[in-house]
Design a binder for these strands. Structure first.
Lengths: 107, 107
DNA sequence: TCAATCAATAGCCGCCGAGTTATCGATCCC
DNA sequence: GGGATCGATAACTCGGCGGCTATTGATTGA
């Protein structure tokens, strides 16, 4: 049961790959060449990372002649925020419970 | 430059480990034995995962006789929400720029 | 037409991490 | 004290993943 959380966490866990995604968020659409120039790794490595990001739905590609432009798809982060909200909700629900409230007073 | 995001994403990227953390969020404090019973992996594997979670600040341990009780530390998730908020902020900021550009083109 | 550029793919390698079994230290109970 | 239980550690295996170079395919432009 490999859900959306698995894919997102797994995809974003690599620093190089996450840096690429962050850059696309900051600066908008970028070509593979531009991304490679600042990534510190080879062009094939960047292409692989972009493939993983694309399969996770975090980026989309647009072909224009020889170049491929990639851009961030921020909506794909929704499951991530949902997950953290859910964890907080669990926490909150237990916190409302008197027994758990007392149990947590020593923290 | 291994920041808090690296640690969090890396720690939560493993499904087994994330399941342990989720369970601690849902059900509160649990012993290693209880966590092992439902994890599907061996006790040493669970202990290792708990060690990783502890080093990431996501759980704390409390010793009581032979048993060790673990509980979730939800505050440690803050860098994660910060990160997603930041990504959204970048995207929003670029969207505002585009809006300004279009607004100026109208005039 | 042909050289040059861009990005993707193939193929390979090395390492890290998640899993295992075995064991140890500590604690509980009889 | 001695056996049993709990959890951490040791030592090892193995698969996957991130990196590389080399190559291919496609497109550009001289």
């Amino acid at each position: 049961m490999t859900n959306a959380h698995d894919v997102l966490f797994r995809t974003l866990s690599d620093p190089t790959r996450r840096a690429i995604f962050e850059r696309l968020c900051r600066e908008g659409e970028q070509t593979v060449g531009a991304l490679t120039a600042q990534s510190g790794v080879s062009q094939p490595a960047v292409s692989k990372h972009l493939g993983v990001l694309r399969q996770a739905g975090l980026v989309r590609d647009r072909h224009e002649g020889r170049q491929t432009h990639y851009s961030a798809q921020l909506g794909a982060l929704a499951p991530l925020t949902d997950w953290t909200n859910q964890m907080n909700a669990f926490w909150q629900s237990r916190f409302d419970d008197l027994e758990d409230l007392l149990k947590r007073m020593d923290q």
